[in-house]
Simulated assay, not measured.
Amino acid sequence: MDRTERLYRIDRLLNERGVVPLRMFLDDLEISLPTFKRDLEYLRERLNAPIVWDREARGYRFDVASTGPRYELPALWFNASEVYALLTMQQLLKNLEPGLLAPHVEPLLSRLRMLLDRGDISPAEVEKRIRFHRQAARAHDTKHFAPIAAAVLQRRRIVVQHHNRARNESLQREVSPQRLTFYRETWYLDAWCHLRDELRSFALDAIKDVKLSTNPAHEVPDEDIRQTLDAGYDIFSGKGVQWAELEFTPERARWVSRETWHPLQEGRFAEDGTYRLRVPFSNPTELMMDILRHVPAVKVLAPISLRDGILGQLQEALRSA
Rank of each mutant, 00 (worst) to 15 (best):
V152M: 13
R111L: 08
E97W: 10
N168P: 00
R111H: 12
A102P: 04
Q135H: 09
L96V: 05
K128H: 12
R131H: 14
L93T: 10
E185H: 09
M89A: 11
Y84G: 04
G99Y: 08
P98Q: 09
L87R: 07
E125M: 11
S81K: 13
L100W: 01
F182G: 01
V83T: 12
D141W: 03
A151I: 06
S176R: 04
M89D: 00
R134A: 11
A136E: 12
F132R: 12
E106Y: 00
E82H: 05
R179K: 12
Q161R: 12
P103T: 10
R157Y: 01
P177S: 10
P98T: 09
R134E: 09
A146V: 07
L93P: 07
A166S: 11
L115V: 10
L180F: 06
Y84S: 14
L180N: 02
R165V: 11
A85S: 10
A139Q: 08
A146L: 13
R179T: 14
S110C: 02
G99H: 08
P98A: 06
A150C: 00
P123T: 04
Q178G: 05
I148N: 01
S176W: 01
Y183I: 01
S170C: 05
T186N: 14
A149R: 02
T88K: 05
A137H: 06
V175P: 04
T181L: 05
A166M: 12
N168A: 15
P107H: 06
H162F: 15
R118A: 02
Q161K: 13
P98R: 12
Q154M: 14
H104N: 07
D120I: 11
R118E: 14
Q91K: 13
Q178F: 00
L153F: 15
Q172L: 09
V126N: 00
H133I: 14
Q154S: 15
L180Q: 01
D120G: 07
R156P: 07
W187A: 01
M89N: 03
E169R: 13
R129I: 10
Q135L: 10
A124N: 11
I121H: 01
K143I: 02
R155E: 13
H104Q: 08
V160E: 08
L86M: 14
E106T: 09
N164P: 09
V83D: 03
V83N: 02
A124Y: 14
L96D: 03
K94N: 12
H163G: 08
A102S: 15
A80E: 15
E106H: 04
A85F: 04
L109M: 05
A150N: 04
R155V: 09
A150Y: 09
Y84A: 12
E169C: 10
F132N: 14
R129Q: 13
A149F: 07
R184S: 10
F145T: 00
F182E: 07
V152I: 14
K128S: 15
N95P: 05
A80W: 15
L101I: 06
D141N: 13
L93V: 11
Y84H: 14
T181S: 12
Q161Y: 01
S176C: 05
L115Y: 09
P103V: 14
A151S: 05
Q90Y: 12
R134I: 11
